[in-house]
Design a protein around this nucleic acid. Structure first.
Lengths: 188, 188, 188, 188
DNA sequence: CATGAATGAGCCTTCATTCAT
DNA sequence: AATGAATGAAGGCTCATTCAT
């Protein structure tokens, strides 16, 4: 939902824009604010007021997914099996990347359009960092891995699944790749 | 070098175009034929005559790298240690992807502009396939990996290294990621 | 006038574009949207917004003429002398083709850019068809003529007048040719 | 064949160019000298040497047809039935226009690229003029028709047949239209 | 707040013609 | 004679962004 409370009609517009953008992203159409304005039958200005750039809109789409990931991650921090906790977190992250087409570009981008996105990405980073630290302390994960590697590796796995082929088996493929990678990350 | 022998002056132009395109690719500038024409001080038509599309030019840049990889791969086929052979091949491939900015898009593209590119990509695929087969027969590599996974995985590793950060330590990072992945791919 | 109501400034632009296009068509210059944009001192985008293709613009120019023809034709349907009604309709049509340089290409085109054009062309066809039917029933016109022949024949007469020579006596020439043709079409 | 005697190889080139151009014209492809050069596997320069402009090439294609028409017309001048002579000449002309796609543009063009074309068009004009004169003297054709009308009318009939529809029944349609027109031209 | 017209840089591509080889 | 590389004007079209209404 919108960051700040909006008038009822404005809120309705916001929702419509987001809904249409979601459809476009899902079908692989590049987001263009003009295009969206036409589809939702609003003036471009209105769309720009809500979302100053296409990136902002894209990040808005990715936000709920990121929030869910963070929520899951916070749960994982409570898990007393550090190996399982990290693996679960990474698995969820990969599934999200492959399932939500808005996520990969947001995850890979070095800078963000929305502060909220930065917040969430930092939360993800922090959670990953803690989970990794615990797993390494427990000596179930290789010591040479740093928390700065987690995001790139997840992006890499998702990208690999994308290169693999059609979008049909993408989730499955991504899971397979992650399993293999974890095999390499974990100590035996 | 040009595919078919060219007149001396045409060859000189070809070289200049390729040289400038190389610079642009290396500095991350997207290839645009008009832009290149301006920079090399030629008519657009000249550039278009040599390279009908930006993809063709990009693939031309990637060709020598691909050829070197194929050459290396053919050598690897003669190695009698199947595990080492595959690992060496994949390592070289990753290094190439990270070193030559023209390679990643070409490697990830589902279709090619130049027949030569298709040839080379198929050769790569075939070599990888054989090396993987041997390693699996020797039971040094997990059986559930297929040759269709090699290219995506290599693209994924390269992409991960790109996401990681600045281009400085990219080679190093990529190597680290590959090592980890191999750890997961190989049987212990 | 514009199909849908426009803002005042947009309407002014629309008018200017149409006016300039009219001049160009009249002097035989091929319509090019870029060229028009330059002449009316507007951004290309503005012209493209109003008229997505040169054909659309040309059809817009032809529309009033077509509307007048249809109006006349509907009047002719009320005439109780079927021979005179048909002859009058065809005469008007020829005069229009020769007078309005936007018409011939629109009339001869197998497909239309604007729905309005299709509507009008179908109306013309329908009117011609009815007038012809009545004239044939009254046995004043040869039976072997079909309504599918009317448009081609009118285009042919107009074209003949164009080939004949300079634009000066074109109307007169066209009328003469039509008279002769009617002489052949009508029963004596 | 070529106007002036050529060296054997040059003659062969000439023939190949003409042959390919004929194919293109027949399939409705616009003539472009570069395009032709590629298809006949010659340098553009060679094609330009033989045919300085696309019009010259087009007229070269039309020449044999025009020559045949002139030949027929000269025969018609010997016919002692002036009505039949004119009708036959016009019929042949129409058939040629509809059969040979190179002819209509050449016939309708106000100026020619090749002197030979001008010669032939003037011969056609002269023959038509004589045949018309005789038919008018014999009072089988309306007196208000002038020899300057013949070419435009023939072009108009051919054009009408083109507008009518697909190229399948074009000859037939053109014949029907000519018959009707003649009905109007001739005295009853 | 909403609208949507206007902008115009800028990319892509074609093609007739010239001229060095 | 033949070649074909080079030219570059020119046309087509898109799209992110601004701003008057």
């Amino acid at each position: 939902m919108p960051t700040s409370p909006l008038r009822k009609d404005a809120a309705r517009n916001w929702e419509r824009i987001v809904a249409v953008a979601r459809e476009l992203v899902d079908e692989g159409t590049p987001l263009q604010l003009n295009d969206i304005a036409r589809r939702v039958q609003m003036g471009v200005g209105t769309v720009y007021r809500h979302f100053p750039t296409a990136e902002a809109l894209l990040e808005t789409l990715a936000t709920p997914t990121l929030e869910a990931l963070v929520a899951h991650g916070e749960g994982a921090l409570a898990d007393d099996d550090p190996g399982r906790a990290l693996a679960g977190f990474l698995t969820r992250t990969i599934e999200a990347q492959v399932t939500d087409a808005a996520l990969p570009p947001v995850a890979a981008a070095p800078t963000d359009a929305l502060p909220r996105t930065t917040e969430l990405k930092e939360a993800m980073w922090s959670i990953g960092s803690q989970l990794l630290g615990r797993a390494q302390e427990a000596e179930v994960v290789r010591a040479d891995l740093t928390s700065a590697d987690l995001v790139p590796l997840m992006c890499g796995v998702a990208f690999a699944a994308t290169v693999h082929g059609g979008p049909d088996s993408r989730v499955e493929t991504a899971r397979r790749y992650l399993t293999t990678l974890l095999e390499g990350l974990y100590v035996h």
